[in-house]
């Protein structure tokens, strides 16, 4: 399977975006995206796990026998998630408290097992690395976008508490758009589904327009 880096990146970010095209990993996409910062943090954590898991599986793909590949993948991913979980707890404790259980649940994120099974187990280390990065970037982009929209409509801020995630240098990202608060519903679960739905519709509209040109 020979795929150029350009195609891989294009697939990961747009054409085959984990959330907006494959529609997997929707549990974190809906549950933790109450703010842009949460979405970004979750996306980055998932990306880290995805890249390392992809590389490891690509390395080991010739010694893993096909019959037991799924348990092996799961053990691999679970170990990586445990490491990320502990690292976040140690260094980004505030974010860890917000993301909470969802960090541990990266284990069962279909996006990771899906990429490992569908791509890394059939490709070399370099393409697997690029694929993990591109898919992770697309996932992060989607989560941050959903988070930002919900945060804007629901609490009237953008990237609140970003400095806790990215360090004091990024405090300029935190914007208070309006003071009146917002529609509480957008922070609650229905808001996630509504935003996700409208974004999906928007992407489809763009794609149809592009193809028909």
């Amino acid at each position: 399977m020979s795929t150029s880096i350009k195609t891989l990146v294009k697939d990961g970010v747009w054409n085959n975006n984990v959330v907006f095209a494959q529609m997997i990993g929707l549990c974190p996409a809906a549950a933790v995206t109450t703010s842009g910062t949460n979405g970004l943090g979750m996306g980055l954590a998932t990306t880290a796990v995805l890249v390392i898991a992809n590389v490891l599986v690509a390395l080991l793909r010739n010694i893993i026998s096909p019959q037991v590949r799924i348990p092996v993948f799961v053990v691999l991913i679970a170990s990586l998630v445990t490491v990320v979980d502990m690292l976040l707890n140690a260094w980004l404790h505030e974010l860890y408290k917000v993301l909470g259980l969802f960090i541990a649940l990266i284990v069962v994120n279909c996006a990771i097992l899906g990429r490992v099974e569908a791509f890394a187990s059939k490709n070399g280390v370099w393409p697997a690395f690029v694929d993990g990065l591109a898919m992770g970037f697309g996932f992060t982009l989607a989560l941050t976008l959903i988070g930002l929209i919900r945060e804007f409509l629901g609490s009237g801020t953008l990237f609140a508490q970003a400095s806790q995630l990215l360090g004091e240098n990024f405090a300029f990202l935190e914007i208070h758009v309006h003071e009146n608060g917002g529609a509480l519903l957008m922070i609650l679960p229905p808001g996630a589904f509504a935003v996700l739905g409208f974004l999906l519709a928007g992407k489809r509209l763009l794609d149809t327009r592009r193809h028909s040109d």
């Binding site: 917002g182 529609a183 509480l184 519903l185 957008m186 609650l188 229905p190």
Partner: peptide, 8 residues
Amino acid sequence: VALLVSFP
């Protein structure tokens, strides 16, 4: 209901 939940 959406309005009531959003703007009590």
